[in-house]
């Protein structure tokens, strides 16, 4: 019965804060590096350089 009330794992789970994946952050940083906004007269064009 004791084991039923043993909540160590759920406490540990609570301490883990949700975080975005590393890949997502990497993607965003690479996207930022690749994105260039070109201004022509009153217009702005976005270009993605690979």
């Amino acid at each position: 019965m004791g084991k039923l009330y043993f909540k160590k794992s759920s406490k540990e789970a609570k301490n883990v804060q949700p975080q975005p994946a590393k890949e997502t952050i990497e993607f965003l940083l690479n996207y930022s590096k690749a994105l260039e906004v070109v201004e022509y007269r009153n217009m702005k064009f976005e270009t993605l350089l690979n």
């Binding site: 996207y31 930022s32 994105l35 906004v37 702005k44 976005e46």
Partner: peptide, 9 residues
């Protein structure tokens, strides 16, 4: 992505 685009524009 929206943040980056807005900042760069």
């Amino acid at each position: 992505i929206k943040v980056i685009r807005t900042l760069k524009r």
